[in-house]
Nucleic acid binder design. Structure first.
Lengths: 343, 343
DNA sequence: CTGAAAGCGCTTACAG
DNA sequence: CTGAAAGCGCTTACAG
């Protein structure tokens, strides 16, 4: 293993000051009025030797690591892993690397993660925050570390935010179902006071009210396993005969709900029409295919990264907060194809 | 924003040498025979001030970043994002952070990623390699950087490896289907020469041969989109009337295949029984539920991290390579529930 | 037990 | 245009 080249070695071999080499490497040759000739010579040498500057040393002197932290509820969730994929492309194109971690919606774990990442001096944070980490988020911002919250926010903390128009998502879903003659439309959601869940519920209630229907909400405990959710969904459906349609507030609730409907021997959409919040690969493949309120994943990643980068590169002042609300896309598929309609 | 404390500040305030502080902070107080009294005093002070040492500076002097790179085909894939989740827990528990990236199976992109991560001095690599990056992997190893390949390997490069017993997976699947009286069992796989795909095919062929059946393999082009795969699967199934059963070599092929079977108006498992390689949340929920050859995700992550850590911490010499082959679990569900059997 | 000093590999005023 | 020097915040022989 040959010794790694340092900027010192280059300066020595070429009989130049290392500051000169540093300037050239950082594209400041013109600015520092270094001769084209010398610039070329250094660049050529560097190219030949395959010299790669140590990011570590650079970070230590500049104070920038060019790393960002992606802290989501759970990296293996369909939504988060897809956002991660799109973010990756944007980050790498701009010279940033991403460290991911999962909060599992546990405030204590989240606090520890933030402390760990702070010790690593990441330049910025993209976070889906659980309730209870308000002061840690504030501390980040106080220390001039850019933070963009997404998917949900903390009502008491002023931050940059990128999220879906959740209200519109469920509102539109109700209207779609109502149009196909469904009158008894339920919402199955999580017992959670996360903002995105509240917005989804509010949108549902608003549309229900507008059409003079009766609201019917079932809240699944957050800590349920899949089995329990299926059982409880079955119970809920049995308890409410005449149910026309169900809107599920997350894609995993929908998956459990579909199972429940199947177990009860009911047909989708003939007996019960359904719409899921958050699209999923399998919804398109399922039989019948499942209508969904889709979050534009790439657009969301784009807005997230842009918001963060604006702060990281000081294109936008720290005090100037941005809220990006992305409209959902309602994708009609077989599960809302009412008996009386041809799609 | 108050100035961050450094080890220097602590040494000054406490009138101690900073080396002493450093030793205490690194748990070498005993070893260096520093008085308990002083040790306590420093620790208390550090605690009070909330001092966190800069990992950056530490990395620069030790040469270790305590970061590892997780380079997978695509971070948003079900299998990879789940492995990522399990790896995260292990890494954090051991003081490591993970930078992820996606090769998208493109050797050129992979080469660039490796170069970028090398410049970041990550301590070790977990990689699902595309063919064509043999020399870059060798270079990593030559430079004493631990590399563990997983899911697939490069036949020409000797490395640590963690993977599934793919052969056993398809072999067992064929035997299961054969037992339920299926005689015309096809394999739908990817046109790929990745090792895991070849092993799956080999396992299939071996079991087919053992039972004196006729092999029937359809290879889906790697670059297909979902629509095309569905169309081609339909074509394949139509072209082979009397098909009893299909084994899909990946879960996404299975999802497309299920769609194809539905479109053709065939029933699972009455007309065609199916088994998918790689489990998926939705297989349990689908109607009928889908039998799968499951990769134990947490076990795989555990073995991956252990193998890497052994090298990182020099518990195992560099020359000593480890191959961990994990047995798959065949999960029987409704899609292989043959008409003549009660499950 | 403790302190002074060199070193990790960069950047960036400052002086010429 | 270029060079000498300090600094980023740690670790770790080395000497006492």
């Amino acid at each position: 293993m040959r010794k790694k080249l340092s900027i010192n070695d280059i300066a020595n071999e070429l009989h130049v000051a290392k500051s000169t080499v540093s300037f050239i490497l950082n594209g400041k040759a013109k600015e520092k009025r270094i001769s084209d000739e010398l610039t070329e010579k250094v660049l050529k040498f560097v190219e030949e030797k395959g010299y790669k500057p140590s990011h570590l040393a650079k970070s230590l002197s500049t104070g920038k690591t060019k790393m960002i932290c992606l802290m989501v509820e759970k990296i293996s969730d369909y939504f988060f892993s897809h956002v991660a994929f799109h973010l990756e492309a944007l980050a790498y194109k701009n010279g940033y690397k991403i460290i991911y971690c999962s909060t599992e919606n546990d405030p204590e774990k989240t606090r520890q993660l933030i402390a760990l990442l702070r010790a690593r001096h990441v330049d910025g944070y993209i976070i889906t925050p659980p309730a209870g980490v308000e002061s840690e988020i504030r501390a980040l911002i106080n220390d001039n570390l850019p933070v963009v919250l997404f998917d949900r926010y903390l009502p008491d903390v002023a931050t940059d935010y990128v999220g879906l128009d959740n209200f519109k998502g469920t509102f539109d879903a109700v209207e779609l179902l109502e149009k196909t003659a469904a009158k008894k439309i339920a919402l199955i959601t999580l017992a959670s006071d996360q903002t995105q869940m509240i917005e989804r519920q509010t949108g549902y209630l608003a549309a229900i009210k507008k059409h003079h229907l009766k609201p019917l909400i079932f809240k699944v405990p957050f800590e349920n396993d899949t089995e329990t959710t299926i059982k409880q969904s079955m119970q809920f459906i049995s308890d409410h005969p005449g149910l026309d349609a169900i809107i599920f507030a997350t894609n995993y609730l929908a998956l459990s709900g579909i199972k429940a409907i199947n177990e009860l021997g009911l047909a989708i959409p003939a007996d019960i029409a359904i719409v899921a919040f958050d699209d999923h690969d399998v919804f398109n493949i399922y039989n019948p295919s499942i209508s969904a309120i889709s979050q534009p994943l790439d657009e969301m990643a784009k807005q997230l990264f842009k918001t963060l980068l604006d702060k990281l590169e000081n294109r936008v002042s720290f005090a100037e907060l941005s809220k990006v609300i992305i409209p959902p896309e309602l994708i009609e598929r077989g599960s809302t194809n009412s008996a009386g309609q041809i799609l």
